[in-house]
Amino acid sequence: MNGSNPTTRSGQVPGGEGPDREVLISRVVDGVAGPSDWVEIDLISAGDQNVWREIAQAQRDKQLLDFAVGRATAAADRIDLPEPAPLVIIRRARMGAVQWAGWAAAAALAVAMVIVPKWNAAPNTNTAGLSNLIPTFDQPPTSPDAALDNYLSRGRETGRVVRQLPDFVVLDSAPAADGNGYDVIYLRQIVERARVDSLNKYKVDDAGRKTPLPVTRIDSLSPL
């Protein structure tokens, strides 16, 4: 937007010659009012001094709204794109699922066996040569909350965790035995994303047995 707004733009009073009052005020607030706009404002103020009060109020509103929007969207700067790698790996694994299944199972077992002792390792445990297989953690999570935060942040990075829903589903609650507050049993709801090779629905027969039925689509349910 340049500094010389023509007076034939939209926002005109029908039959009028210039932009209407609120458009003029808005241009002033956005710092894009041109010389002809100021002439219009001068003309208006000659008959109605209230226009200056309206401009001041509009400036104030804009300042407040900019502040609120900036605050509400500040988190955007911390949201980076998730790495696409995990999905690619899964897709490749699916293509050669049969031939690599045994290897993958063995590798998973091996990595699991290495990782588990890593957290509880004795000081002299020898893991030399396997360090490139071991995820590096500055410190293992020391509490359930820290572990959960770790899972959520890693999950978001890799695309596995879509979101954590804000509501908890209360299953049970009772006054605490020591009289301090309440003990609550609840469900925490975390939405995850995964890619699978096939989809099944389950049909329950008269004997109560569940029989899988392959389908091409499962109608979505609201994740609560």
Binding site: V69, A72, A76, I79, P82, P84, R156, R163, P166
Partner: peptide, 28 residues
């Protein structure tokens, strides 16, 4: 994009959660 989500999101939703969904779509 975050400002647009702010304009349309339901009250209870968080902008950063929705933004992550947009980011995931951009990647895919």
């Amino acid at each position: 994009v975050a400002a647009l989500l702010l304009a349309h999101k339901p009250r209870w939703a968080e902008v950063d959660d929705l933004l992550q969904e947009v980011a995931a779509t951009l990647v895919s």
